Computed example of a mutant assay.
Amino acid sequence: MNNEAILREFLDYTQFVRGCRPKTADAYAIDMKVWQTFCRNDYPQMDNPSKAKMVVDYIRYLRVDRKNGSSAVQRKLATLSAFIDYLILMEIITPKQDERKKWPKLLDTPERLPVVLENKEIQQILTQPDTTTILGRRDRAILTLIYSVGLRVSEICSLQLRNVHWEEKRILIQGKGGRERYLLSPVINMDKTS
């Protein structure tokens, strides 16, 4: 089942048939290389990637040998599951061979809470730009947007003037994975000519 051709076809399928974005397809490729390495070393004759015993060993390999955290393990298992779906779709394995119901359930690990700045720290940051210059006013607007509506740096970088709707006081944001959303923003109260 380590057949390179099948893996390439699966990766093409994820991007060109399912319509996964290139970054998602790249993540699948990375995950499948990890899985391939595991199989090459521990299961060279493996013919069914859904075998529960193999998955238990794979999880141990991810956690112990690779020192992957819970979210990385979950993602790699999700990729493997998508690969199994593909193998069933292409009739390489049958639904009767699918052992995913026997896979161990991974416990959710509590996510680390983000560190929150105190109000005085935020104010210190917001007063840093020199608002007597155009770049300083831009920087102040960027910092205010990041703070007030929680934008990612990538969302700020992709922001275009045409995305700002001054009258409605809202901004069209291009989010992760190309998703769009509108946000109301206090920054729009600023003079748009400054």
Rank of each mutant, 00 (worst) to 15 (best):
I156Y: 02
E91R: 09
M54C: 14
V64R: 13
M46A: 12
R152C: 04
S71E: 04
R140N: 09
D42F: 10
M46K: 07
R137E: 12
K102E: 11
V153D: 03
R162P: 02
M32E: 00
V34D: 02
E111W: 05
L161M: 10
L107I: 11
L151H: 01
M90G: 02
Q123E: 15
K102Y: 11
K105F: 08
I92A: 03
E121T: 08
E91I: 03
Y61R: 09
P104M: 15
N68I: 03
Y147M: 11
L87Y: 01
Y86L: 03
S81Y: 02
P49G: 10
G69I: 03
T94E: 06
N163W: 09
M32P: 00
V56C: 15
D130Y: 12
D98C: 04
K102T: 08
Y61G: 02
D85Y: 01
Q74H: 04
K53M: 11
M54S: 12
L143F: 14
P110R: 10
R40I: 04
T109F: 08
L159Q: 04
Q45A: 13
L143D: 05
P95A: 04
R63G: 07
I146F: 06
Y86F: 13
P110K: 11
T132F: 11
L159P: 02
L145G: 01
E118M: 07
A82Y: 02
N119I: 12
A29R: 07
K105W: 08
Q123V: 09
P95F: 04
P49M: 13
L145W: 03
S71Y: 05
K76R: 06
I146Y: 05
V153E: 04
K96R: 13
T79P: 00
K51I: 12
I142N: 06
L107W: 10
L107M: 14
A72K: 00
I156K: 01
T79Q: 02
P110I: 09
L161F: 10
P129W: 12
L77C: 01
E155V: 03
T109N: 11
L87T: 00
V149R: 03
K101F: 10
L145T: 03
R140C: 05
K53E: 13
L113V: 05
K51M: 12
D98H: 04
D47N: 13
L89R: 09
A78I: 03
